[in-house]
Write a protein that binds this DNA or RNA. Sequence first.
DNA 1: CTATCGATATTTGTCGGAGTAATTAGGCCG
DNA 2: CGGCCTAATTACTCCGACAAATATCGATAG
Lengths: 294, 294
Amino acid sequence: MWTRCIAGSMTRTGNQALCIRRIRGGGASREKRKMGKTDGAGKRPSRRNGNPGRIHGTIAHDLGVAIVSGQYKPGEILPNEIDFSERLKVSRSAYREAIRILSAKGMVESRPKTGTRVTEPGNWNLLDPDVLAWYFATEPDPALIDGLFELRMIVEPAAAALAAERRKPAHLTRMREALMEMERCGVDNEDGRDADRTFHDTVLEATGNMPLMSLASTIGAGVRWTTIYKARKDELPRDPMPDHWKVFDAIAAGGPDEARDAMTELVGAALRDTARALRRETPDNSAPDTAANG
Amino acid sequence: MWTRCIAGSMTRTGNQALCIRRIRGGGASREKRKMGKTDGAGKRPSRRNGNPGRIHGTIAHDLGVAIVSGQYKPGEILPNEIDFSERLKVSRSAYREAIRILSAKGMVESRPKTGTRVTEPGNWNLLDPDVLAWYFATEPDPALIDGLFELRMIVEPAAAALAAERRKPAHLTRMREALMEMERCGVDNEDGRDADRTFHDTVLEATGNMPLMSLASTIGAGVRWTTIYKARKDELPRDPMPDHWKVFDAIAAGGPDEARDAMTELVGAALRDTARALRRETPDNSAPDTAANG
DNA sequence: CTATCGATATTTGTCGGAGTAATTAGGCCG
DNA sequence: CGGCCTAATTACTCCGACAAATATCGATAG
């Protein structure tokens, strides 16, 4: 598994205004860089798979989360490179590479003399898997979840119909295996969620449509995160397997209309479940203050 | 207008295996860097708006175009940083920032000792406006155009229906102005195409759905490029305005079903026109070899 | 002969500093 | 009061060195 730029998981960098304070003082620590033993404060950047994470990816992740969470508002100008990189305890090169990542995702714009400013959210590349992950790194806006479900409701039924017409045997095999894995593990398991995502990805892939396949990562992220949301409430309101099998059968049988209807039902049921779970979470109190992290 | 990372236009860097050869030898040219007077050969990186273009953006653009055009195949390993940056006549820092941009768009993966390799196309962020622009920098795969239209056919009618329910007066105003501008300029003009794109963007924006709004840049690019494709054949087969006004009227009247139907008809007509134009371009000969650039 | 372990070499990653280009801001002059 | 020029700030580029990571190859034990 290669690193792929944004390694980070780093659930919730911390409220303390992103301070990296890394230990492994790579590079030229000729005689400056005292790096006192203040290690305990700064949690190590990433820890998934024991991947220590690259610094630029960590910085990009933290800045991205800070931006999508509103800590840096659109139009706001970040401190200049030297000050900010010093405050983050990283070199200017690493900081610049992080900014380059954010710029590539449309979240900041740089220009000499003016500095680097956060762009309007309309310019953010929300379909980018990393950006979506940054959104879900903190408690995301419920409107975003609604929007993702609306997108699924639009795209997935149509994709299922196309898949029913164009699927190759390999796709059917993968779908079947994914569903069987899903049955074996259950949706409350990480493996089960992966299998769920694989199934939906394969449906999109079976369309043979490259833009739709690119949407797979986005929709897959939506599937995954919303499933986690639902599961977090410790309620398993409904067995999702019959709906999934119905979609599979329709695609295998080559029935576009049946596949579309089945997928509509599947996504609609998931939408209803998630909406209910979210509504229960905030009964009437719309306080956005997340009381999670003690 | 801020730079926004990828400045480049630089239509077709040239067959000579992307060689930048810049003049403005920025940075420390202490006493090395002879930089002979070989200026004529190296076209200046970018020239849109008089924006000279940043080096990292130029390199990312050129590499991105080279990758999507198949010059660097998936799985292939790029030369190491030092060699490649020297060959491109840029510093290692600038090259690394360019690679970081490509990595952020999912097109390359880097790891120590192994190098930087081109990822599988399924991982590329095709919804990214820059990536899409890179595709259209050379003659793109007709399958991509088909895919984009299919995506439009899926998303835009549903978006029109949502827009009919949720549009604000400001949206209607913008749509009306865009259509009037479109009528005034005609679709063969650059301004007319911009107005067309604005109309479609506003429809998506009127849905109030953030992921759909992010798709606007993608679909807008598709609209724009496919329109150019069609116009390049010097045939104006049909007046697109009645279809557009029908969509607008339905959205203004608040009729979701009518808006959906009208938009379906609009996109379908555009699809038929473009398909016909493309088919005429390659009558029966499916040779992928683009005989354009002499 | 095979498999596991360790040294090695290669590549990306990180660092700090120095100098350049670009663009905004403000003063100056017409 | 407006246009032009100067100045200052900022990002951009370059450079050279060191550190970390890891795939490859060799050695050693079974």
